[in-house]
Design a protein around this nucleic acid. Structure first.
Length: 785
DNA sequence: GTCTGCGAGGTTTTT
DNA sequence: CCTCGCAGAC
């Protein structure tokens, strides 16, 4: 059916006009698009139009009639990337071709394949996908059952081992004995038991998705052949991030026609610590003899100074495929380098710089807040910026952080839904049987578990039996009876075809779960309630609970943007693929960046990955890039002095403007950091500290205050989310009085101790006394729910 | 079974 | 410094 159809499509395409989208490409991009047959490696440097080449290639495959949408396999790493590709292909080919069924992440594609062949690995096609939390609880049970001390041998650790084995495509029988022995001499046995348990639960973990499908391909040639024939063309994005099992998966699928096009950048491989093998991309030409290698080197993102600085750093790495980025852009500004006395000073300085940039008072055109990013090595560095920005009222957002569906309240709610839809889901039942507290502790759960094991019943049924027999203490029995009755009622409603959104609300309400958080005094309780509301709202977009659960396991993200421009704070890892007119790279100190641990654990390989991280960081910048470091940093409450990062020495001098007064570093930027660290700094930096304080004496004169005012006018009323949470007009500020109970998104509840203009001094219940901008708190009685 | 106080440990993170 | 997890007391 597909074949006869494609002939027809082909004719249609021939008749169509020559593809105009090709004209929008530069020569190598065009080559990458037109080299349709055989293996192709596209080495796409940062900002060279990789996504454009990739999406145009897909469009070209469709347009030339080489393939139907269903015959193209396009693999990405993240849902975001998949979405973007889908959208951009859609734009190129117009509405003429429906969405491609095989465009997605490795994991999403594997789910699809695995559902079709689940029985080949002993699963049913409606298997559930466990997340890390379930995984760890399951593993802990196994460790305990094996009489191994789970303090000495934590479940987390074994989960890590198993994950890495799965990343390498190793089933329990293939794990090298020496490695298996590293976990209590029982790694392989426990791994095997874990796989067995998963099968019984009709569940898989993330690693299994790839592992099972690869196994199926290896052991069932007929199945493999089917997919080899179906996927005439295979495309892979971010190939440098593939791990071994993903590589095997791809190689199996591409074996026949070898129409495999991979796109990536070895210099941006930063996920080695989670199994990515740079080797995959370095080896591509060997793996696929005759492969065409196309380099995209014209950069459309950054200024020459930025590119040269990035190149200076990355060129220190060995084992590279090698690329030289170039651009037609004007020279622009040099990178700026500045040292600070400590981390706080660094945050303060960056705050000032950002305000100046926004206003254009640095002599440059103004840069809006959402064009500015702060990229850090480790997430603990974010705090200094958050604290500072909250104080000066600079709007920011933190990218990354815990995912929506990983939050405890979401997982709890989901567990309720899971038990309602699938009573066999013992893990889910166990999770919420005593949440909220119902007097069903560890002992009761053990009882139920034992009953389930003895009788072979699912946990919910085992609980019912236990109640009927009069097991447990009278109190626990009564409590458990209520739980069972609740679930019966909800299941009945589900069967009766109740609206799933209403049902979800009913479940959260009747179970006492919502009430639990309403009664919770902790600062994050209102946020959690808000998340639950959002969860229920998200349900509206789905047919039923089941469909929603699948979506959440694989795709759900935490995106709640309110549209107001904000400065972004994120890790360097999270920044890959993004770009900003202005980028700040703080914390360039040896030990922090490059990370000591990376170097200790992985030696030169670790250092090189850190260096690629530096490369990724610098190449995020379009116009301005500011690198900074501090001589002292408060880490875990202890003051530590540091020397500038070795990467600073690697920045080519001619592309860097050193803002720190000369004499600070000895020779180059920091090449010969004076023995004894930067002992000359205190005097110098203290001066600017005082200046800063003087400048800030009156908040009403500060750029921050002015910006806030302007911003409020612009966004205050039109943004419902902001409007509810922020004080949006000047009179409202005065409605606060000393002693008022208020709520702050970050610090929680507190009482106002003093008011000065827009600044409130608040004694927070949990976070201590802080000075905050009035617009960042709400009266406690206006908190959601 | 639940609450409180103490000690340890504390990169990077997608699916 | 701050958070999490555990051991001991109610």
């Amino acid at each position: 059916m597909e074949n006869s159809g494609s002939a027809k499509l082909s004719k249609m395409a021939m008749a169509a006009r020559p593809a105009p989208y090709l004209d929008a490409l530069n020569p190598p991009q065009r080559e990458a698009v037109e080299a349709l047959d055989g293996p192709v490696l596209v080495l796409a440097g940062a900002g060279t139009g990789k996504t454009r080449a990739l999406t145009t290639r897909v469009a070209h495959l469709l347009n030339t009639g080489r393939a139907w949408p269903s015959q193209i396999l396009a693999v990405t790493f993240t849902n975001k990337a998949a979405r973007e590709m889908r959208q951009r292909v859609g734009e190129l080919v117009g509405g003429a071709v429906e969405g491609m069924p095989w465009l997605g992440t490795f994991h999403a594609l594997c789910v699809k394949i695995l559902r079709a062949h689940a029985e080949l690995v002993g699963l049913q096609s409606n298997f559930t996908i466990l997340d890390t939390d379930d995984q760890i609880r399951l593993i802990r049970q196994l460790i305990q059952a094996a009489n191994i001390d789970d303090k000495r041998w934590p479940a987390r650790m074994l989960a890590g081992f198993i994950d890495r084995w799965k990343n390498r495509g190793l089933t329990p029988d293939k794990v090298p004995a020496a490695e298996a022995a590293q976990f209590a001499n029982a790694g392989a046995e426990l791994y095997a038991q874990y796989q067995q348990r998963l099968k019984t639960l009709n569940a898989v973990d993330f690693g299994d998705l790839l592992l099972h499908v690869t196994g199926i391909f290896q052991h069932h040639p007929d199945v493999l052949e089917k997919y080899q024939t179906r996927f005439r063309y295979i495309l892979v994005d971010e190939y440098q991030d593939t791990n071994t099992v993903q590589y095997l998966w791809l190689r199996l699928l591409a074996q026949g026609h070898r129409n495999l096009c991979v796109v990536g950048d070895d210099d941006q491989s930063i996920y080695g610590w989670r199994g990515a093998e740079v080797g995959n991309i370095l080896r591509f030409e060997k793996d696929f003899p005759g492969a065409r290698v196309i380099r995209l080197e014209q950069n459309y993102r950054s200024t020459p100074h930025i590119l040269a600085a990035a190149d200076g750093v990355i060129s220190r790495n060995g084992a590279r495929l090698g690329k030289t980025l170039w651009t037609e852009a004007d020279a622009g500004e040099k990178l700026r380098l500045i040292g600070h006395w400590d981390g706080e000073e660094e945050a303060r300085w960056i705050g000032e710089e950002i305000e100046a940039m926004q206003q254009g008072t640095r002599g440059n055109p103004p840069v809006p807040a959402d064009g500015i990013a702060i990229l850090v090595r480790a997430s603990f560095q974010m705090r200094a910026f958050e604290d500072r920005f909250l104080t000066i009222g600079l709007p920011y957002r933190v990218i990354g952080g815990p995912r929506f569906y990983e939050r405890a309240e979401i997982r709890d709610a989901m567990a309720y839904f899971r038990v309602v839809t699938t009573p066999e889901d013992g893990l889910a039942f166990e999770r919420i049987v005593n949440t909220p507290k119902r007097g069903l502790g560890e002992k009761a759960v053990q009882e139920i578990n034992r009953k389930a094991r003895d009788t072979g019943l699912p946990m919910l049924e085992a609980a019912r039996a236990l109640v009927a027999e009069g097991g447990l203490t009278a109190r626990a029995r009564k409590s458990l009876a209520t739980v069972v009755a609740d679930f019966d009622r909800w299941r009945a409603a589900l069967k009766a075809g109740a609206d799933h959104v209403r049902l979800a609300e009913q479940i959260l309400d009747e179970s006492g779960y919502t009430a639990m958080w309403k009664n919770d005094r902790s600062p994050d309780a209102p946020g959690r309630l808000e998340n639950l509301k959002e969860l229920v709202k998200a349900l509206e977009g789905f047919e039923n609970l089941q469909g929603f659960l699948e979506h959440v396991a694989l795709v759900m993200e935490n995106e709640q943007e309110d549209g107001a421009p904000k400065v972004s704070i994120m890790t360097l890892h999270a920044a890959k693929g993004l770009e900003f007119p202005a980028v700040f790279l703080p914390g360039w100190e040896d030990g922090l960046f490059p990370s000591q641990r990376s170097m200790d654990e992985n030696g030169v390989k670790g250092l090189e990955e850190e260096r690629r991280l530096a490369y990724v960081g610098i190449t995020r910048a379009q116009e301005y890039c500011t690198i900074s470091f501090a001589a002292n940093r408060a880490m875990y409450g202890r003051w530590q002095s540091a020397i500038p990062s070795r990467f600073i020495d690697e920045l080519p001098k001619e592309h860097v403007e050193v803002l720190t007064p000369p004499g600070l570093y000895g020779g180059g930027h920091g090449a010969a950091a004076p023995a004894g660290g930067m002992t000359t700094m205190p005097g110098i930096m203290r001066g600017s500290d005082l200046e800063e304080r003087a400048a800030r004496a009156s908040v009403y004169n500060s750029p921050g205050w002015a910006r806030m005012q302007a911003r409020r006018q612009q966004y205050g009323v039109s943004q419902p989310r902001e409007a509810r949470n922020l004080v949006i007009d000047a009179e409202a500020v005065s409605r606060f009085a000393t002693g008022d109970r208020v709520f702050h998104q970050k610090f929680g509840y507190g009482a106002i101790a003093a008011i000065e203009g827009d600044k409130l001094t608040v004694e927070f219940e949990k976070a201590g006394t802080k000075r905050v901008v009035a617009s960042y708190v709400t009266a406690a009685d206006e908190v959601p729910f």
